[in-house]
């Protein structure tokens, strides 16, 4: 625990404050000042220049009627829920690796799991975009080669989607109905390098005698997962989940690069962050963008506190 230094002694130890000074300056200038400035400017009509006009709560009342903004929450909710399910492969892989008997293999699999991290995320992004290319992308080639395409066309006939046709390449990012499915499929098989490692750390705390006991009781492997392994990584899962949801709510880089500043065909890929970016750096409505950001902040804060209150899992 830190040693307490009283107010009297502090004059002698004033040098210690120098240690916090750089961090304090950085955070004050590049985190607190912009945040306060955002709050301040959300009451103005402002395009980033020296002139601004106080308009009271106009920006906020505009947000209430902003169908694009609220519509974008529908999109981001779907993506966030999908992201929760996308954790399953990581958990599955971690458990698989953990149950291996060979330490050597366990190590090398960890290395392989980490490998994708060293490819710049933009490169991964562009390669996936290339996978989705209607004419040259491997996704369509895969669907054609395996006959899944025929199945989709059949389903299309049955349900009248009007999306899939024989001999017509599927435009994954060009068809408004396919934008969200494409975003969900993105990054298959959704292995998060850090998550797998974190889950593995959690799993390591299981002693081998527990397994032996389970073995004697003839517990099936799924039960073993359910009653021994999953409870132990619950904390990690919860933390990852919270970070994931907050991260998803903030994210817009993928949508921006993939679908453009307007969220792609029919605006179906519009997420709150992108709408804020769009208002600021496309329309030049900085004041309104600040108000949007503030709303987003409040919503994220609300979610975090809700999570802390109700989803708490005892260690």
């Amino acid at each position: 625990m830190p040693t307490t230094i009283s107010k009297k002694k502090v004059l002698k130890e004033w040098k210690l404050y120098l240690f916090i000074l750089p961090s304090f300056l950085f955070i004050g200038l590049f985190a607190y000042y912009p945040a306060l400035s955002a709050v301040y400017h959300s009451f103005f009509s402002w395009s980033g220049g020296d002139t601004k006009e106080f308009i009271g709560l106009d920006n906020f009342s505009r947000i209430l009627g902003d169908t694009v903004f609220w519509g974008s929450f529908a999109t981001i909710s779907v993506l966030a829920i999908a992201n929760v399910f996308k954790m399953i492969p990581s958990i599955f892989l971690a458990v698989l690796i953990h149950r291996l008997s060979s330490e050597r293999w366990q190590y090398w699999y960890r290395v392989l799991v980490v490998l994708p991290m060293i490819v710049p995320s933009l490169v991964t992004l562009f390669i996936w975009k290339f996978f989705y290319d209607p004419n040259f992308g491997i996704l369509n080639q895969f669907l054609d080669a395996t006959g899944i395409k025929t199945l989709l066309v059949g389903l299309d006939h049955f349900f009248h989607w009007d999306i899939f046709f024989q001999n017509v390449p599927v435009a994954w990012l060009g068809e408004s109905a396919l934008v969200i499915p494409a975003l969900i499929l993105w990054g298959f098989p959704w292995i998060g390098s850090v998550s797998v490692l974190v889950f593995l750390v959690g799993l390591q705390s299981i002693g081998s005698q527990i397994y032996e006991a389970a073995e004697l009781d003839g517990v099936s492997s799924f039960q073993k997962f359910l009653y021994i392994e999953f409870p132990l990584i619950m904390t990690q899962v919860r933390v990852t989940l919270v970070l994931l949801i907050i991260g998803t709510l903030q994210s817009y880089g993928l949508q921006f690069l993939l679908l453009g500043e307007n969220g792609g065909p029919g605006g179906r890929g519009m997420v709150p962050g992108l709408w804020m970016f769009n208002r600021a750096f496309i329309a030049g409505e900085f004041g309104y963008a600040c108000a949007l950001g503030l709303c987003l902040f409040v919503i994220i804060l609300l979610l975090t506190s809700l999570n802390n209150k109700y989803v708490r899992v005892d260690k």
Partner: peptide
């Protein structure tokens, strides 16, 4: 034109 050209 090629199928789906309006998405190209």
């Amino acid at each position: 034109m090629q199928p789906g050209f309006m998405q190209g």
